[in-house]
Nucleic acid binder design. Structure first.
Lengths: 140, 140
DNA sequence: GTTTGTGCAAATATTTTGCACTTGA
DNA sequence: TCAAGTGCAAAATATTTGCACAAAC
């Protein structure tokens, strides 16, 4: 209940309400390009003086992920990591296993390959997941 | 006690013992090339009449994974899946979402692409996972 | 005033750990 | 023998859910 931030881009669709918690989470997600866990985001919110329940953070992240507003990624530690994506287009991520920094990558070849492979095996409704992980330059 | 100390000639570092449980797990892993959860493997063992504790299954899977004998993958459900492939060579799977049937596929283009993408971003220790899913012909 | 959203506490689910007991070599 | 291996019970971790209450519209 600190700063009055009834901001900017909330073009809330019908039935969706704008709350202090939602705005705070959206702001935090906007500020970083790394994949972050729900716990991490929750802690970050607390540090900025914005108290948001952990349950609410999970609730919202799931809602955002379901609507496609953010991407999810599962770390090797078993945590689900979230990140706001720059584009709605299909793409993949190159993620640093150490710091979580992500680079968005495109792979026309991969898309084509996946489609072709599936067709050859007579599979339909094809979906694919590609996860590339490594250690980024700063973490070496 | 006059101990005859002829130690220090430890040439057998891996004092690994063969047990009924280890053999059973190895056999199950050998039988499939699909990713399977610890719970699934535990259940499969039970069905063949081989009682192995869940803890032991986890213990062994982790040991095998650490030694590089099997690969691990995290599903979207949050489970860790394990697989033992016939070769050490890298390959991927095309899995039917309905019946679970899996087809092994190779993708030299994908390997090359992933490597190149990672190098361009100056990432090291690169790993990648590709999962293609769809509905197979028999399930249409 | 009604409906959506929040968040505490408790429940689930997966995996790990403490520790006494087995067993292979 | 005796350390490696096993497995029950309980802990640790991550996420979900029940539900009373608050806030948005």
């Amino acid at each position: 209940m600190t700063v009055d931030d009834r901001t900017s881009s909330d073009a809330a669709p019908a039935g969706e309400r704008s709350t202090r918690q939602k705005r705070a989470l959206a702001r935090i997600l906007q500020e970083t390009d790394e994949f972050r866990s729900a716990q991490s985001l929750h802690a970050a919110l607390a540090q900025t003086g914005t108290r948001v329940g952990l349950t609410t953070v999970y609730n919202q992240l799931r809602a955002l992920a379901d609507s496609g507003a953010i991407d999810t990624f599962r770390s090797t530690d078993g945590e689900t990591l979230y990140r706001r994506c720059g584009t709605d287009e299909h793409h993949h991520h190159l993620v640093c296993r150490n710091c979580g920094r992500a680079v968005e990558v495109e792979g026309p070849e991969v898309e084509a390959w996946a489609t072709q492979v599936a067709r050859a095996a007579q599979f339909t409704d094809v979906e694919h997941t590609v996860e590339i992980t490594g250690i980024c330059r700063d973490c070496r």
